[in-house]
Write a protein that binds this DNA or RNA. Structure first.
Lengths: 328, 328
DNA sequence: TTGAAAGCGCTAACAG
DNA sequence: CTGTTAGCGCTTTCAA
């Protein structure tokens, strides 16, 4: 740290108030004193203590982010976009991970509030009215992303149900006789908020009901690759796997490859999210673009609106975009 | 925010000091008053204002991180590890990106200091004694990672030179008659700190000098995929590409695949870093594990030592680990 | 046009 | 064992 405003004031032979006025053009001030103060300020490289300012103004120009972690490719892209957006508006980002642990999530949220962040973006693993009450009790604007926590909490996400509905239709059109939904998180639905995946599963089942002739299977749980392989072996017609996240698709392709199964020849597969690493994967995975940048931008935007206490619609649904590939 | 310590004191009918003593076991206090205060504190969910505390104690329990961005897979893994390590020690992380812009880097560093972070981890794009002076002038412990900024600044990284030296030897042993080093950042060496890549290039050239019979080429600049392809076409013997980052290798493999070249049959290739997405890439890329977690752990560790004003060796070199694959 | 004084919420030295 | 007081560095009335 350099010099304080008090020291600067002494150096200039004026009061702290005058220094303040010179620096922030607030109130009337003699142009000459102002210039003199600015010169000295530059000379001594005065920079205000942001902690002290935050304490008195009640604004820290910080936003807090609580997500699972940044190992997950989707989240690290999200984080990147959030930091960028925030910076544009002069905000810094305080990042924390809950690591899929409900207690940690709560703890981190409290900590952020105690640091007086101006707002929070949260991808929660919790849900329900109790938790909504807790979030409200923080007395800090919170925007939820990905997983919806409760109906009336600000939320940004995509319409996953519609996306998977349409995708399933498309798969069926291609003539697959058996379509397997791979959705591991469903197994955790009792303990965690897996809204994102439930929505995607819902779209799938809705589509399958329309086509009773096509065989349909749902796989949940984290030994999904093995289960998927069994389904492929049993077969009973051309089989496609629809995964509720790209990462599951990649794991399965890997698993199948090691067992001599070739995509397109032996099976079809589709993912969801269009994470950036797909660029390096061959053959190109069919997927659905869950526009991270768009979600991030909207989340930050909505958060700022809430911080300004604007009356805003509490929900923003961003468009998804189907991405063509070579795996169906 | 909930209730303040002053309000809590009133509620309990004692002074703020007593409240403080009850909460933090400091100094003598009547067990009964203590219990009473703790009970009330819990009842009203008192949590101290961390900003105010930071202002008075001079410690914020924040560390700042300045890296390029979290699009880069290496950095997002790094970030993840740093946040984890920091949390273990009760610290939060304030994350900022410099986006390869020297001015932004400086600005972000200042901002972090003005927020009184207790220490900073920096992957810089600058170097030299002037910049070292600037960093010293921040009066905040700074640990540099990846790129060394100046000799006597705390630094954590791996021995890239030795790693590439050994790797090059290995490639040559496999009988390749031409080895191409792909190191795009070298083209930016005048403007940026590209220490990491310079080191890796140095190890390569050192090895090649030992084997004058093997043809050796160096490619820099960001149209490297095209250039690499030209080298392959010209050939003049079995050709291997040694890339100073996995990501370059992936781009090249992609580029070559689109042009009908098959790895191992038509060329050999090796990367550096062992980023996590390689797991999904087939064939498995030969590479060198740049132990992110290890680097992160050491960086945080070293930073804490500096913050405690311990006399510590300013440099920690972490081991790399060669990773076998199917691309040579 | 300038300055004095209060206060943000906390900690810490010093009295009682 | 408890309370008073001062102060971290800033902003913001209010008065001169």
């Amino acid at each position: 740290m350099g010099i304080t405003s008090k020291e600067l004031a002494e150096l200039c032979g004026v009061s702290r108030t005058t220094v303040h006025r010179a620096l922030y053009n607030t109130g009337r001030i003699n142009p000459e004193t102002k210039e003199m103060i600015l010169k000295k300020a530059k000379e001594y490289d005065f920079r205000p203590d942001l902690l002290a300012r935050g304490l008195v103004t009640g604004k820290t120009f910080y936003i807090g982010v609580v997500i699972m972690d940044s190992d997950n490719r989707y989240f690290s892209q999200m984080l990147n976009a959030i930091v960028r957006e925030a910076r544009k508006k002069g905000y810094s980002v305080n990042i924390t991970f809950h690591e899929n642990n409900a207690d940690i999530e709560k703890e981190q949220l409290c900590r952020l509030v105690d640091y007086r962040v101006d707002g929070i973006i949260l991808s929660s693993i919790r849900k329900g009215t109790d938790y909504r009450k807790f979030l409200r009790g923080l007395n800090t604007p919170v925007v939820t992303i990905d997983n919806k926590v409760a109906k009336d909490l600000p939320f940004v996400g995509i319409n996953g149900k519609k996306a998977t509905y349409e995708a399933a239709e498309q798969i069926i059109e291609k003539g697959y006789e058996k379509v397997v939904l791979v959705c591991p998180p469903l197994a955790d639905a009792a303990r965690e908020n897996v809204y994102v995946h439930e929505e995607r599963a819902a779209g799938f089942t809705k589509a399958m009901r329309k086509h009773p002739a096509v065989k349909s299977v749902i796989i949940d749980g984290w030994d999904y690759a093995k289960k998927a392989f069994q389904e492929l072996e049993e077969a009973g017609g051309r089989t496609a796997f629809f995964c509720t996240a790209d990462i599951f698709a990649l794991e399965i392709m890997q698993y199948f490859r090691e067992r001599g199964k070739k995509v397109q020849r032996d099976y079809g597969i589709m993912g969801f999210d269009n994470i950036d690493i797909l660029r390096y994967i061959s053959p190109k995975l069919c997927t659905i673009y869950n526009s991270v940048e768009e979600v991030a931008r909207n989340a930050v935007d909505l958060l700022f609106a809430l911080m300004d206490e604007e009356e805003v619609p509490a929900e923003r649904i961003v468009d998804y975009i189907p991405v063509d590939g070579e795996t169906l």
